[in-house]
Design a protein around this nucleic acid. Sequence first.
RNA 1: GGGCCCGUGGUCUAGUGGUUAUGACGCUUCCCUUACAAGGAAGAGGCCGGUGGUUCAAAUCCGCCCGGGCCCA
Length: 908
Amino acid sequence: MSDTQDATDESPAEQQGIEGEYDPDAVEPRWQDHWVEAETYAYEEPESGETVDPDTRYSIDTPPPTVSGNLHMGHLYQFTLQDFVARYHRMADDTVYFPFGYDDNGIASERLTEREKGIRHQDFERRVFQEKCRAVCETYEAEFTEDVQSLAISVDWDNTYKTIEPRVQRVSQLSFIDLYEKGREYRQRAPTIWCPDCETAISQVEQEDEHQETLFNDIAFPLVEDGTGPADDETLTISTTRPELLPACVSIFVHPDDDANQHLVGGTARVPLFGHEVPIIEDDRVDLETGSGVVMCCTFGDQTDIEWYQAHDLPLRIAIDESGTMTDVAGDYQGQSTRDARDAILADLDAEGSLLEQRDHDHTVQVHERCETEVEYLVTEQWYVEMLDRTDEYLEAGRQMDWHPEKMFSRYEHWIEGLEWDWCISRQRDSGIPIPVWYCEDCGEPILANKADLPVDPLSDGAPVDACPECGHDDLRPEEDVFDTWATSSLTPLVNAGWDWDAEAEAFSMEHPELYSFDLRPQGHDIISFWLFHTVVKCYEHTGEVPFDNVMINGMVLDENREAMSKSKGNVIPPSDVLEEFPVDATRYWAAGTSIGDDFPYKEGDLEAGERLLQKLWNASRLVEQLAPAPEAVEPVDESDLAPIDEWFLAELDATVESVTDRFEAYEFSKARNGLRSFFWNSFCDDYLEIAKQRLSGDGSASTEFALTRAHRTFLKLFAPFLPHITEELWDRIYRTDGSTDRAGLAGGDSSIHTTDWPTPGGYDADLEAGETAMEVISALRTYKTDNGLPLNADLDHVQVYGHVEGLADAVAEAMHVADLELLADAPDITTEISDIDLDYSIVGPEYGNQVGDIEAGIAQGDYEIDDGRLHVAGVTLDPEMFEIEEARTYSGDGEMIETETAVVIVG
RNA sequence: GGGCCCGUGGUCUAGUGGUUAUGACGCUUCCCUUACAAGGAAGAGGCCGGUGGUUCAAAUCCGCCCGGGCCCA
């Protein structure tokens, strides 16, 4: 492209007019660059002091992707869906807010920085290390930007943010302080899900299942007492996969329905090797199916242990510390790793004869999703956001949003119903946004940072007070922990709306209140439970409002065999491979091809179909350009002066404009795409263009020129959200008017089709039935020619038509090269015979119920009479609207008869 | 183990009670017609995973079974 052109005034197209084939390789990158330079997608900010109607602005809160990874098909698909929405609304509404966020705050970027720089985060002050992270991430952000721009995603590149940047850190810390002041946060020493490898607490959502093959160990516990008193030399058998937790054993549980072991309840047993005595308790949470049915409860082996600890007020025996090392509770095994301790304890149990049996066992353990290390359940001090007390409100908030598709709401609902923990938001890591708190060393009082000072890092910055406001002690200890990344990722609507603390007003305010609530939140169905849910919770707590009007859920991209793409399966298709072979517009056509929410497969066939549509659109445009004069010379034509065929087509076009609009409004891209494509291809190209070609081949027709131009311009606009490059190229070559309005008054002079107004119906009121009949006649004549081995442009001397085609006969004759088309006033010389009677079941069914069978039998046997339009059968009389008579016609005259639904055509 | 979603011609898909089930890709035959052979016309191909039920009527509602997926234990 020409770099010297002024991007806002000149178009990048090098030529006007349409020649040759469409060349997406040349056209697409040119426009992508132009749109970014010309800021075609810029959000139109309200004038200062201007109050704007939020209905005229469409705002999207996009979930920021992690940018240190490569762009994958999921990104392409998800961004493209968002872009359909953005482009449609940019045309249909006044302006669109379509921001972009780079999520580079967290462990991924920390590890990346360490790797690239060859450093360790421990060797730097936290703030200094974070600056290095920001520098490293910039390269990746730039790459990602380029990738997203090359997909023609119409993001406003002046509205971006990085989750690692100070502005976002400030919002995160403000959020923390606000929730604390609202009493929604607490710090507590409690059982926590812990990753011993990352040495940090994690939240419920960060753990995932992993199936493991391990050993089930049957261990004999000497019984001290049973339910009735001292026991004599009896043992009970505990099956466990985690013998290293023996020192942490605090009790033994038996199921109330377990008759064989019922006598044990109320007694005690001695833990082998460690010697302490534990009670035997009854509880229905025991799994009778697995192992011996008698289980030990430890501090803590799994979530059930925690439930038992809380329900039965059991003591704590902490045998494993934060790094996965055995504590002094483990006695001789202190200092060993859990793995070493397991082996040693098993060997010692075996030596003393307590290890009865070992079996292979498949079971499921919880692992940390990032490092796949098996989690521990430790008792630590953490910050929590209280949630369990307000699940009803959060459920209601979810209900207030419109879900597309609707069925996805159930994911949100079930997630909330299954919540068991408040949200643990503190993490023991160096990467991440610092928790802005100091503690009094004497009384433990937490001292929060001043809102005006944010962002702060307590490890580098001083506390806001010199002494504890509670006790006056002056030794203040900074909080070392940072926020869970979701604590920040859940604030994107507030970041986008410019939420901040207004010190003067002593209240929170928004720089862009007109954006909030956001019109749309797009989200993958796999992360509704944490990302979307946490975002709703946080924004709801801060603003009292549900942050989104609509939620659009996208499915996952599968491979051609309908399997999820994954590195381990080796079936990942990188977008770069696809884009090498296909135009971006073709990938967008593919992405539009399924109803949102459903997973759908990568299909080359669909991409090829998209490519063909591009060529069709190009070629049809070329014909339009040849047939109609320059657009500025096209005179507008009043409806009363339109030829019936042109009026008919514009009326059909109206209906398509309406249905495509409705479908965009409802996020039904697939239906919009298919409806538009088939009307364009089958009605416009195959029928109307063929007719127009004939009508304009001679002297031309003002009516047809006008209709053709109007239709073509409308098609370009309707296709624009799906196919932004080719529509822009065609618009630029044919219709761009540099600010002036053309004589037909059909378009404003916008320099980009993407900022023109979305088409509205012209209110054309034509005889649609006549049009349909005319098309049937054309179709019948095509069939005739095909059946008789004639080319479609073969001349026909004489055709008679009996049917309602009104003023369309000439158009039919021209299109099908009929020299003499005769309209018959009466049915032609045919004999008709009733062949069947079709019932309208929607009327007959409810009316006659189980008599319908008799009616059908009567008709089948010919045992009926038709009298004065009524059908007498099986002892009942059906009114005319209840049935339709099917007739078989026999033609005995000259020529060949062809029947259609509503017409009879005789050729020859 | 619990919950949710899905199962329509070879492939993908529309269709949530009403007559002969939508479209695309692929396939067959014919046609170079002055936008397009990456085109046009015609055509073959499904009885809607299985089964039982509700109903005058079911791909569509209900039960069970089989198969696939997702979320959560």
